[in-house]
Design a protein around this nucleic acid. Structure first.
Lengths: 215, 215
DNA sequence: ACCTGAACACCGTTCAAGT
DNA sequence: ACCTGAACACCGTTCAAGT
């Protein structure tokens, strides 16, 4: 009876810490995440976090896992292997668009993406084998698509808002000496990312098809 | 006569600072580069650097330019557009292998790569146009290859030495539920990067060829 | 058991002062 | 003109002390 009312404060836990870290990154940017700020966000001193995560690197490992957990949706099986790979690639890029500030974390330890997306990956490999690809070619095909989309998105998300800050004299020299490159530079910018992604993905799938049993 | 012997000390300059910064990154890693350490390396207090570079971000801009300047070699024209694109891609990846620690800087402001590699880029575009590709398709083809190789290398260089630190229980679950993905995981590692790169590049070129006038 | 305060060894950057 | 010293507002992390 004389004890105080139940405290509002939810106890710290690794999960609460990691979820809050991702939210801070989403809202303020990766560079703004510090142990001290994260502690403040949780109503706690920074030093308390160390009871639940080994350090900042371990915290970022947790954020990466959380991110990749979002990748896997109950992927409906596609009509064929090409459909499966297109779907996997597009869901990957959508993850980047949902968390552009955090996406850079996925550059390191990219192999964990296969565990996170294991159901989609298994379906993709099965579809490739069913179409007559041998094990090695099927493996390379899937790894190539994953590498492409991860690399593509990393650069896209890192580029955010820095289109082409070239000095005027550089642009003039370019227009004089390499006019086609100058034309290409003008086409750069966020507006062309969707088309570029689909172009590259289509080229890759076409090229992979040519390496299969029928190619 | 009474003046001291000419000082050994070379005066600071933006170029000396940037060149030294790249050396520090190459030798000790990007995370180890600080204004204070760089000053020490140059025999100067950190604060003196601010007379020559606006800040750490401007310094890293300079390092990126220095890096990209290495990309351009007097590229002998290839036999055809596919040859030109293959050569550009391989020189890009070689740059990554030469400076794995610094390569991550190229994720941001990736468009500057076209200026740095402008001679190769112009040659590639010219070869595509000569083969009958229209301007838009030629532009997308070149941009796709550049994006692919930059993204591929970024992930490769960021991965350095972290093959697949999966826990045993994760591996067991994977072998049970997604055996093909488990097989794929075993194939990961630095030893397969060359083959993966060539596979992806070949697929991409094949797919691009199929989008050209003869496809 | 869980959280805190103080401390350590660092950061990037500014600015008045020295030479 | 060029460099420095001291300072400011931060970092990640450790550890003895508090509750």
């Amino acid at each position: 009876m004389s004890s105080p009312p139940p405290v509002e404060r939810i106890p710290l836990s690794r999960e609460r810490i990691v979820v809050t870290a991702l939210r801070v990154i989403d809202e303020r940017g990766l560079a703004q995440l510090s142990m001290r700020r994260l502690g403040a966000e949780l109503g706690v001193e920074a030093m308390s976090l160390y009871k639940h995560v080994a350090g900042k690197d371990a915290l970022l490992d947790g954020v990466r896992e959380l991110l990749l957990a979002e990748l896997e949706t109950p992927a409906a099986p596609g009509r064929d292997w090409a459909d499966d790979l297109l779907s996997l690639a597009r869901r990957y890029r959508a993850l980047g668009r949902a968390h552009p500030e955090a996406f850079g974390l996925l550059a390191r330890g990219a192999d964990r993406a296969y565990v996170a997306g294991r159901e989609s990956a298994e379906a993709g490999l099965a579809a490739l084998r069913a179409a007559g690809f041998d094990e090695e070619t099927a493996t390379y095909a899937l790894r190539t698509v994953v590498r492409f989309v991860l690399g593509f998105s990393l650069i896209e998300m890192a580029g955010e808002g820095a289109p082409a800050p070239l000095a005027q004299d550089e642009l003039d020299a370019l227009a004089r000496d390499q006019p086609m490159v100058a034309g290409l530079m003008r086409s750069l910018g966020p507006g062309s990312e969707d088309a570029l992604f689909e172009f590259g993905l289509r080229a890759l799938i076409t090229g992979i098809a040519a390496m299969g049993p029928g190619g």
